[in-house]
Design a protein around this nucleic acid. Sequence first.
DNA 1: TATTATACCAATTTATTAATGGTACATTTC
DNA 2: GAAATGTACCATTAATAAATTGGTATAATA
Lengths: 230, 230
Amino acid sequence: MKRTEDAETALCHMIEAMAPGERLPSERSLCEDLKISRGTLRVFLERLEARKKVWRHVGRGTFAGSRPLETNPGLSVVADTTSPHELLEMRLIFEPKVAQLAALRASRQQISQMWYCAKKTGIVTDSKAYELWDATLHRTIAEAAHNKLLLDVFDAINDVRNNTDWGRLRDMVVSTPARQRQWWMQHEDLVDAIAARNESRAEEAMRKHIESVQLMIQGAARNQLSLMPE
Amino acid sequence: MKRTEDAETALCHMIEAMAPGERLPSERSLCEDLKISRGTLRVFLERLEARKKVWRHVGRGTFAGSRPLETNPGLSVVADTTSPHELLEMRLIFEPKVAQLAALRASRQQISQMWYCAKKTGIVTDSKAYELWDATLHRTIAEAAHNKLLLDVFDAINDVRNNTDWGRLRDMVVSTPARQRQWWMQHEDLVDAIAARNESRAEEAMRKHIESVQLMIQGAARNQLSLMPE
DNA sequence: TATTATACCAATTTATTAATGGTACATTTC
DNA sequence: GAAATGTACCATTAATAAATTGGTATAATA
């Protein structure tokens, strides 16, 4: 009885002397040092964990201090748990302002590339090709904002977009020639505003464009929902 | 002479028949199949790479089609290459809209937590504690937007913020009681707008707040620049 | 009842091995 | 002499194996 209590206080002192985040020896070596069995040691550690004195993780070890905020998982893993609605809301926050900055800072070469991409979105026939040129256009605009951090965030969001499998939904984006014509005209309008260095018009054009997509997707999702058995 | 040319055209046809992104056999097995040496094969591949017909990567292989956009490196690694200016521009794009959504969707509990954090930013004395409560306030607002993807993006941006070492710059944020009072009042105003469910006022308050920080940091950076030897 | 001893599991890290494209150089072939 | 070959080695990456860790169950022991 006495010996194990001594071991517990020794363990506590040991932990208090450690810097937060520092790693404890493994359970197997700790129980040797303290001359107690692994089972009893784990009882002590359980209490310490409840008191937020340590935190544990299988395969890694036991650490002093309280569990750190889980590190950013890279954004692409959230693809499974996010919805088209969330993604479009995000893009609606982000991209209009990006277009505004692009209107200020785009180089002539970038603008001509935008024209090229926009034209392509009007003439390609299959949905995969459309998506490619659409993505390239939007990314060119993000590049034209000339802010590296902003571009990285854009790519991170796009990663989510690419790693989802709302497959049937995506095909609907260019389901009809009329729709494709609508997106193409919006693209032309957007690039025209950027080329004219008209900040507010560029922002507005991008906002309108994404809102259109949002409306379309919402409608499609509703239809699809009513058709699906579960 | 003739045989190698045949091999080159055969290689071209092979690649054209492949789907973009598909992986070619390794150089060592390809040159066996085509009955040519690795050196000449590599000359062909070099030409194909220049024409964007293939792209190569050491340790991975050679792939058909044009090189895909480089994958998101995790956002936290860009911390070294980004600047306070870029970060604040990013936040200025992002957070006002987040505040607007928060005004729509914040729960009562979240609002009371905002009040608590805002009050703390007014009374704490050391700059580390200020940063803690400031960060908690801003993150609570992001949570209140109730969009998981948005929150992840917010955390990613914050990661950059934490992983930089513009140390002296950060201390200046609360360098004087007058400054701290300024930020505190802006925080109170912001939370008040959210609590009142006033979207446009919340957006405006957040914009004003970040613009103030932006101005301050710019001024501080200028001063520091003029003091630094290199 | 409390403690020990033992065995096994799933998650994770670390170490090892194998494979890839990149490069240099001597050799062969036409 | 120019073109092609054969060979050896490197740095990077992927694939695999081995070792370690916390988590859990069970029987034996004090």
